[in-house]
Amino acid sequence: MASKNCIIETKGLVKKFDNFEAVKDVSLCINEGEIFGLLGPNGAGKTTFLSVLATTLQANGGSAMVNGFDVSKSPDGVRKSIGMSFQDNSLDIDLTAKENLWFHCRMYHIPENQINEKISQALKLADLEQFADREIKKYSGGMKRRLEIVRALMHEPKILFLDEPTLGLDPQTRRALWEKIKQLNQEKGMTIILTTHYMEEANELCDRIAIIDKGRIVALGTSQELKKSVKGDVITLETRNNQAFAGKKFKFVKNTKLHNGEISLTVDSAEKRITEIVLFAKKSKIQIDNINLKKPSLEDVFLHFTGKTIREAELSAEGQFAERFKASKPELRAR
């Protein structure tokens, strides 16, 4: 049974592709009416997780309830409760924008007398009014993205899934879209689950954020809570001898991390401690090239929980791909 406030609840959810576990044992409760963010690098399993919730992929283990419906036992009930915008194209490229929106309205049983009104509203929001009758195959990437998202909003579902909603959008459109997402959430009480690898987006929009890495949820909480979990401020240093700094045990330093030619020291009230660090450097004759003090950001939270920045996690995933590619059989590569 789902707990009372969870509009989405997963228990030990697992999704495998052959031997690769894309989603590993995810247990999660998403509350009704919140904007929930899944933050993680590309390939972390965010899209796979959403696809299982949206019933387009079947889980290999565990359970998931969406709006009181079990995704594997009553997928039709789930589909009636949700709307989804996908990361890659799901528009009919042979049809025009208007025809695509019309089709969507019909599929979601929007009353006939409201359809025209809905279509013009959606086109206006996407700023595509003058391209309404153009076929999607003649659209640019950004135009498709905008149309795709406004289409998912048209039927005002109880739960809205947005997979990387602002990927590839320019800053103004992104802002406008954030406003629209917030408005839908506040006015209609729509529960919104979005995936993103933009820290800023998660920070700006989401009531709660789950940090997901390699198919696992490594941290969960509000933006504030997550930042607090880093426990302190971060002083970042670039020096000529990072090893010496990393080796030095300062009493007040809670956590030392060495990555990418930088040292991150986690401390309380960094403003007071910074002088001690500079003094130590002077005494040990280590030149400091750069010193930086900041309150923790989501990027630091990600670093704290995974030992990598989100960009590094993406790069390492690409690295793994390159290695696998090299290891693959030459005849496969030739194709």
């Binding site: 589909r79 949700i82 799901s90």
Partner: peptide, 17 residues
């Protein structure tokens, strides 16, 4: 082709048997 160009996803998440 619906599957290749992605439109099938739109049909599959719609509340249609």
């Amino acid at each position: 082709t619906d599957r290749q160009f992605g439109f099938l996803k739109e049909m599959l998440v719609a509340p249609i048997p």
